[in-house]
């Protein structure tokens, strides 16, 4: 692995109730980035990986750093193939495959992590989903106002090419795993609570995942749970 990502400098505290109040569209709102570090094997040093560096890296290489690119990795687990495991701290999403392997994708997560940990499932999926900003964003942000009725799916839509809607039982959690028109933000913490992947990756994941698939969100941002 050429780059090993890690996160630091984040603060947590987002409760799911607060997130629910924010509404669906907040997930796709891009804002400033908190800090991520990646390991540079040439200098053998951890280097800051912020929005500026991410942009310049992407401009130079036309892709994200190697660690965040889609790859098959060894992954020993008792979870069955088809299960998604999200490690927001390291900015990885694993899709469990047979024979103790997984497809690992790079992800971008919220400024405050995913906001919670636990088990959900893929309740439904959509291709080129419509993005509808929540009312308070429409009131606050003139750019969002024109999409008050919903921005149709397309290359500029913040939800990107595909969306997986995460449900707890039959309830939509309002959290999504979705694409992004800004692929350089993979590896950063720049939205509010949702998981972003570049459009090729979310399209690949979407093609492999069945509705009902188990999704495990790891501890990071585990404020949903008692005593945390």
């Amino acid at each position: 692995m050429a780059f090993l990502p890690q996160s630091r400098g984040r603060t947590f505290g987002a409760k799911i109730a607060a997130c629910l109040a924010l509404g669906v569209a907040v997930c796709a709102t891009l804002a400033y980035a908190a800090e991520t570090q990646i390991f540079d094997p040439k200098t053998r040093k951890w280097v800051e990986y912020d929005r500026k560096k991410a942009r310049s890296y992407y401009a130079a290489h036309k892709q994200v750093p190697e660690a965040f690119r889609r790859q098959i990795v060894k992954f020993r687990t008792a979870e069955k193939p088809g299960t998604i495991i999200i490690d927001g701290n390291q900015h990885f999403l694993y899709l469990v495959q047979p024979d103790f392997t997984a497809i690992r994708y790079g992800i971008g997560v919220g400024r405050e992590g995913f906001g919670w940990a636990g088990m959900v499932k893929v309740g439904r999926t959509a291709e080129w989903p419509t993005w509808t900003p929540p009312a308070e964003m429409v009131a606050r942000d003139p750019n969002a106002r024109k999409w008050a009725g919903g921005q149709p799916g397309g290359p500029d839509n913040p939800l990107g090419a595909r969306a997986l809607y995460l449900y707890q039982g039959d309830q939509d959690t309002i959290y999504r795993i979705h694409g992004t028109p800004e692929p350089w933000t993979i590896g950063l913490d720049v939205s509010s609570g949702c998981i972003r992947m570049n459009n090729d990756d979310i399209t690949d994941l979407h093609s492999r995942v069945a509705v009902g698939a188990k999704v495990i969100v790891l501890m990071q941002g585990a404020s949903l749970y008692k005593g945390v």
């Binding site: 990795v73 020993r76 390291q90 636990g118 790891l218 501890m219 585990a222």
Partner: peptide
């Protein structure tokens, strides 16, 4: 340390992810 309580599948998947990345 912060003590986390959550379902076993989440705890075990965290062990899997840590082992996969030598964390």
């Amino acid at each position: 340390v912060k003590l986390l309580e959550m379902p076993e599948d989440v705890g075990m998947a965290a062990v899997d992810a840590a082992a996969a990345t030598n964390t």
